[in-house]
Design a protein around this nucleic acid. Sequence first.
RNA 1: GCCCUCAUCGUCUAUCGGUUAGGACAGGGGAUUCUCAAUCCUCAAAGCGGGGUUCAACUCCCCGUGGGGGCACCA
Length: 494
Amino acid sequence: MNQQCCAAPHRFSGWRCCRVAPQSFPMAQVRVRFAPSPTGFFHIGSARTALFNWLYARHTGGVFVLRIEDTDAARNTEEFLKVIYDSLTWLGLNWDEGPKVGTCGGGDSGPYRQSERAPIYREYLEKLKAAGRTYEKDGAIWFKLLGDRQEVFDEHRKKTVVKVKNTPAVIEDLIRGRVERLEDEDFVIVRSDGNPVFHLVNVVDDIAMRITHVIRGEDHLSNTSKHVELFKALGAPVPAYAHIPLILKQNGPGKMSKRDQGALIEEYQRRGFLPEALVNFLCLLGWNPGDDREKMPIAEIIRLFDLPGVNQSNARFDEKKLAHVNMAYLLELPADEFVRRARGYFSGLGENAGAKAALAADAGFFREVMLLCQSKLKGLEELPAYTAYFFTEDYPVDAKARDKVMGKGDPAARLRELAAALATTDFSSDTAIEEAIKVLAAGKGLGFGDYQSVARLAVSGTNIGPSITGMFRVLGRERVLARLGLPKEAFGSA
RNA sequence: GCCCUCAUCGUCUAUCGGUUAGGACAGGGGAUUCUCAAUCCUCAAAGCGGGGUUCAACUCCCCGUGGGGGCACCA
């Protein structure tokens, strides 16, 4: 993956890809930002927002800025920050400017944590004050809109509010087109405790960091009129906007939230999903290359990605599709890489006994086992259960499989015959093993399958698994014969 | 309630006025096979409703309806 950061972003193509130039930075380099707040979770929707920002930066040869919106001081931000850094890094979304982490970060528009930018907010607040665009009320500082005002009773909120006869803000959205929204009430920009609110710091930072394109979730579309008013009041150019559709939970109404199944990036990481598969899947949620292609290398996605190509409608999350994409990536992983990732997954399992046994095994043996099973898996998380019997003699026996297999024919006799037939077979060769079983079966007027099923149960304790000849070869003659000859208690009377 | 926004198979989507409305996931069936997967073939599955505009509308416009978001001294 693309882990070498930031310093020299690739230049895939230029401005011709962007149908609508940002309103006030005609030929400037694209600067986008991802601005999460450290809550301790990294949401899949946030991941996609980060991804689309990153893609746009890489596509245009622009700069991807990471800014931490940690104005909520009450939290243990150091630990929560790590969640953000880890998730972005895992997904391969390297940032050019932002907090320094590994090879990512740096830049001259810092600091990149809002908790460290108080003087900057004060400075911009002074500008607003000087321009006569603020006033105090109830101990807070309010932003004053331009226009005649009148008091009206708001039926819904059951209180009198001051409405301003303002003209609608115009948002030229690269995804939605022209959107007009009227902001007709003053709003708080500094709380009575002295802390600036989101709308202010967000706009100030976008100005100070010279952000050209604001790519964010559609849930921010309604906020944008406030932001446009602030940009104008500060005499700053309004950035281009691109509001991307939201990800809806797969069951039930509403957008996906932290508590929904499959919402957290760390969970995919923990479960051994391939980050490149998740990224590819996320790209497809709201964007497509314009043809039937789905599984695509990230470089190709970068080449084709553009904001006007993003869908306008919300997308429902589909874990089945994700699983399929993940499997497709898993299947195509080169042998060495697959083994490396499999080992990584086992390592992540910590004190798990099965995982420890697998990691303690001979590296060559581990590799053989993994490669034997690669094409059978949907995801790395299936690995421990799928391969347990290779690494221990104390593997479980599946009751259902046992009842099914032991119910027909004379299983004990077949195991004996098989053991005898394999006693002199060359176990270094799949075909030799296959031949031996075939010859035995033919001699008894039976099929390969009649021996295969009972042998599989005896040797692996289950009726699913990799090819039995491969399984035998990897396990080796001694262990196979032992398991055929000394069936576990399970093979007594079931 | 007000404001913004969206609308093609169950799901993700293609189509940028003229197509037998295509693909993918999921589902059904079949082939293959040493189990289970994978793979291949195959079946079923969609233009929310009503008005316009046009020779022609899934595509453009309007109105409904439905979904989503927002309406804080949260971000």
